[in-house]
Write a protein that binds this DNA or RNA. Structure first.
Lengths: 150, 150
DNA sequence: ATTTAGAGTGCAAATTTATACATTATTTGC
DNA sequence: GCAAATAATGTATAAATTTGCACTCTAAAT
């Protein structure tokens, strides 16, 4: 049970799981029989370079130093996975995707033929979705989750 | 002194300085006359996506979401010359370029990662730029002149 | 003009993370 | 093998960050 083994385990756990706090990671480690205190964990994370960011849906999550994530992440299995973020601005919905994926995702939205969505325009990695008049943001988002659920 | 202005200032300060804690950033903001509490700052940082990492020499530092750090080092300034006109319409900015140059110019704008700009969609010779809500036309134009100066 | 709904904020408390210090292990040089 | 030096860890505590709640402000609706 040495330090190097522990560091490797920590990196593995962070790579393969969504972890929101050091306490949570600690409990996960205990599950594998490897244990230490939160103080040591804090030092280990700094050593490895793991830092905390946002998980994209209101929570927190630890991340490996950039470049160490899973290569597979950058090859989305489905169009849905290509979406990297959405923002409302000026009554329009901006959908950000991985480079090159915007047209594919936009086509899928268009084909759904939802009334709430007046139309879309796709660039390379950004889609502009124009809702119809008097349609709420929530209604549009609900549309999208219907379209992309599965 | 509204929220959007504060968020833009925060992004600017984080982009241009090495900041290690929210208190430190707070003091920096006070220096510009813009002030709020640390609690609000915590919420703002989440909103913008700024998170804390390591500075490479034992300390901490806040970082912009990846891709937003240093704008446009390697991008030729010549794209600027491709812009043939800009017009505001419906709260959106239409940027006209020479044929074929719209994607290149749009990429440059995107890479700058300015908070004020929610996103862009590029055709062949036209870019649609969507500002965030509550951002003035002037602020967006100032952004652009910053992005394209050099 | 008044009401209502929602966003934004400060305050204080809770939670989470980092560190000073003491202690224990590990390595190094003899 | 032994002492000295160095690294690693735990404990307790400090520092930093996040959040629940109440209040304010703004803008839309009646």
């Amino acid at each position: 049970m040495n330090r190097a083994t522990r560091l490797a385990l920590i990196e593995k756990l962070v790579r393969e799981n969504v972890i929101g706090s050091q306490e949570e990671l600690l409990r996960m480690m205990e599950g594998t029989g490897m244990k230490c205190t939160q103080a040591t964990l804090s030092r280990d994370l700094r050593q490895i370079g793991i830092s905390r960011g946002f998980d994209g849906s209101g929570g927190y999550r630890y991340f490996l130093p950039s470049g160490r994530e899973e290569a597979a992440d950058s090859l989305p299995g489905s169009d849905t996975a290509a979406i990297t973020g959405i923002t409302w601005a000026r009554g329009l919905l901006l959908i950000k995707t991985l480079p090159g994926f915007a047209p594919a995702v936009a086509i899928r939205i268009d084909r759904a033929g939802r009334y709430e969505i007046a139309g879309t325009v796709a660039g390379d990695d950004t889609i502009l979705l124009i809702p119809r008049d008097n349609i709420s943001n929530e209604a549009v988002e609900e549309c999208l989750s219907t379209i992309f659920q599965s």
